[in-house]
Write a protein that binds this DNA or RNA. Structure first.
Length: 277
DNA sequence: GCGACAG
DNA sequence: ATCTTGTCGC
């Protein structure tokens, strides 16, 4: 924000592009909104929408700096200096995806599930494991402060710092993750990322689609089957398990709705933990 | 204006 | 994901 000179304004999209991915535009807007309360000394008002609409309370500050002309004429400042963090994260995802090992998995007895709930500036990750009778074996929590906002396709970089520690405290044969695995634009959704870090089998189960098109019950991306619909959820392999095994294992722990039991439990427990009830 | 992209 | 009351549907 400070690389935008006084009297100039930039669009959320241009700032996001400078950070390495225009798709972070909405997140940039939300962060500027946060800054207006959290750190008023940062020139958050110099970021506006592409149609020239400033954030609430920003017009007055822009006028003080003499930037009304630029704003009205959509003369945006483009020479924004920023560390291209999203481009770097995307590169990391592409490199890591080449390390995925998708193969048949059998003999699963204990399955875990991890989910994250939010409250204020904090978040809590909960990992729950259940046996073949669907009874709880272990529960582990990790409280943490998210370091980056939610941006589609970069979810792992926000949540893994909580998910990983909680998962490391549980024993299991496979872990379900609340999000996608292979069905990701760079073939490395949060489920795959966690599986690689753990060196253990992981399966992604999302409540909505991220990429690809539906052909029957299969998710097709770049001519490849990367996921499938199970119940009302979207299943995709994470790591050390292929699509067919992912489907079978998911069904084994599925009751109804959009998620398998371990994830429903993880969701409930993380939510209780953040609320302190 | 339309389409849409996990949590 | 979260902020929140009543309401529609199985």
């Amino acid at each position: 924000m400070r690389s935008i000179p006084p009297g100039r304004v930039s669009s959320f999209g241009d700032i996001a592009s400078a950070l390495g991915d225009v798709r972070a535009a909405l997140a940039v807007r939300n962060e500027c909104l946060r800054l207006s309360n959290l750190a008023p000394h940062v020139p958050w008002w110099r970021a506006v929408s592409s149609d020239g609409k400033p954030l609430p309370g920003a017009l007055e500050r822009i006028r003080e700096e003499g930037g009304l002309e630029h704003l009205r004429e959509r003369k945006f400042f483009h020479d924004i200096r920023a560390w291209p963090i999203f481009r770097l994260m995307a590169e990391a995802q592409r490199m890591l995806s080449s390390e995925l090992d998708l193969r048949p998995l059998k003999g699963v007895e204990v399955a875990a599930g991890v989910d994250v709930s939010y409250g204020g500036e904090e978040a809590v990750a909960a990992c729950v494991s259940v046996d073949s009778k669907l009874e709880i074996v272990e529960v582990a929590y990790e409280r943490f402060v998210p370091q980056i906002p939610y941006v589609p396709t970069y979810l792992a970089f926000r949540e893994l710092r909580g998910m990983l520690p909680s998962a490391l405290r549980c024993d299991f044969d496979v872990i379900f993750v609340d999000g996608h695995g292979l069905s990701h634009p760079r073939m490395l959704g949060e489920a795959s990322h966690l599986g690689l870090l753990l060196g253990k089998p992981s399966i992604g189960v999302a409540k909505s689609k991220l990429v690809g098109r539906l052909e029957g019950d299969r998710i097709i991306l770049q001519g490849r089957e990367v996921g499938a619909v199970v119940g009302r959820g979207f299943v995709s392999p994470g790591h050390l398990v292929d699509l067919e095994s992912s489907i079978k294992i998911s069904k084994k722990f599925w009751r109804e709705g959009k998620q398998p039991l371990p994830l429903i439990l993880a969701h409930r427990l993380s939510k209780e933990a953040i609320r302190g009830s």
